[in-house]
Amino acid sequence: GMDVRRLKVNELREELQRRGLDTRGLKAELAERLQAALSGPSSG
């Protein structure tokens, strides 16, 4: 899988935006949010 901790802030935001998620917050928050999205149930 993707290691969200290795991504830069702008990369985290890009991935979040692609999934329609909130791109605001600290890098740690963005990484946590993206990780949750990646490990969560895949819809679609």
Rank of each mutant, 00 (worst) to 15 (best):
D22Q: 07
G1K: 13
R33A: 03
Q35C: 14
L16M: 02
G25D: 02
N10P: 09
R19A: 05
E32M: 10
L21S: 04
A37E: 06
R18L: 11
L26V: 15
K8M: 08
S39M: 13
V9Q: 05
Q17M: 11
G44R: 11
R18F: 05
L26W: 03
L38T: 06
G20P: 00
L38W: 03
S42R: 10
A28P: 10
R13N: 02
E11F: 04
L26A: 15
Q17T: 07
R24L: 11
A31E: 14
D3F: 03
V9P: 05
Q17P: 00
T23I: 06
E11M: 05
S39I: 11
A37W: 09
Q35Y: 08
G40S: 12
S42H: 11
E29M: 06
L34K: 00
L34M: 02
P41E: 15
R33M: 03
P41A: 14
D3I: 09
K27I: 12
E15I: 06
Q35L: 15
L16G: 01
A31Q: 15
G40M: 09
S42L: 10
L7C: 10
A31G: 04
R19E: 04
R19G: 04
D22E: 10
A36T: 09
L30E: 02
G20K: 03
A28T: 10
P41T: 14
T23A: 04
G1S: 12
R13P: 01
D22G: 05
R18T: 07
E11S: 04
R18Q: 07
R13F: 06
L12M: 06
R5D: 10
A28K: 13
E11R: 05
N10Y: 06
R19M: 13
A37N: 06
R6H: 12
Q17W: 08
K8Y: 02
Q35V: 10
K27W: 15
R18I: 09
R19D: 04
E15L: 08
E14W: 10
R33P: 01
V4I: 11
D3P: 06
E14H: 10
L16N: 01
S43Q: 12
K8P: 08
S39D: 14
S42Q: 13
L7H: 03
L30F: 00
N10A: 14
S43F: 12
L34F: 02
E29P: 01
Q35D: 07
L7W: 06
L26E: 15
L7R: 03
L16I: 02
Q35T: 10
L30Q: 01
L30A: 01
G1F: 08
A37R: 03
D3K: 08
V9E: 10
G40R: 09
E15M: 08
K8I: 05
S39L: 14
L12V: 02
V4R: 04
A36S: 09
R5K: 13
E29G: 03
L12T: 01
G20E: 04
N10E: 15
L38E: 04
L38N: 04
V9I: 14
G1W: 07
V4H: 05
E29H: 06
M2A: 07
S43H: 12
A31F: 08
L7M: 15
E14V: 09
G40H: 11
R13S: 03
T23V: 07
R13D: 02
K27R: 11
K8G: 15
V9W: 08
D22L: 04
K8N: 15
Q17A: 15
V9K: 08
A37M: 05
S43R: 10
S43M: 12
M2R: 09
T23N: 06
D3Y: 04
L21T: 03
R18V: 07
S42P: 11
A31S: 07
E11P: 00
R5G: 13
D3R: 08
A31C: 14
L26P: 15
E14M: 11
A28Q: 11
R13Q: 07
G25H: 01
L21N: 03
V4L: 08
D3E: 08
S39F: 09
S42I: 13
R24G: 15
A36L: 10
L12I: 08
R13G: 02
A37K: 03
Q35P: 01
S43Y: 12
G25K: 02
A36K: 12
E29Y: 02
E29T: 07
L30G: 01
R33L: 03
V9T: 09
G40W: 08
G44T: 13
L30R: 00
V9L: 13
D22R: 05
N10V: 10
R13M: 09
N10W: 09
Q17S: 12
A37L: 05
G44P: 13
V4G: 03
R24T: 15
S39P: 07
L12K: 00
A37Y: 11
D22Y: 00
L26R: 15
L30M: 06
L26D: 15
R19F: 04
V4M: 06
E11K: 05
A28D: 14
L30D: 01
G44F: 10
S43T: 12
D3S: 07
R13V: 10
R5E: 10
L26T: 15
S39N: 13
A36M: 10
R18M: 07
E14C: 11
R5F: 06
P41Y: 09
R5M: 08
A31W: 07
V4W: 04
E32W: 05
N10M: 08
L34G: 01
M2Y: 09
E32V: 09
V4D: 03
S39H: 12
L16K: 01
S39R: 13
A31N: 03
Q17V: 07
L16D: 02
Q35W: 08
S39K: 12
G40P: 11
A28F: 08
M2I: 15
L16A: 03
G20M: 02
E29L: 05
E15P: 00
E32Q: 12
R5W: 07
G1I: 14
E14A: 14
E15S: 03
G20Q: 04
L16T: 01
A36D: 09
E11G: 03
E15W: 06
P41H: 12
R19L: 15
A31I: 15
L21R: 04
E32F: 06
E11T: 05
E14G: 06
E11H: 04
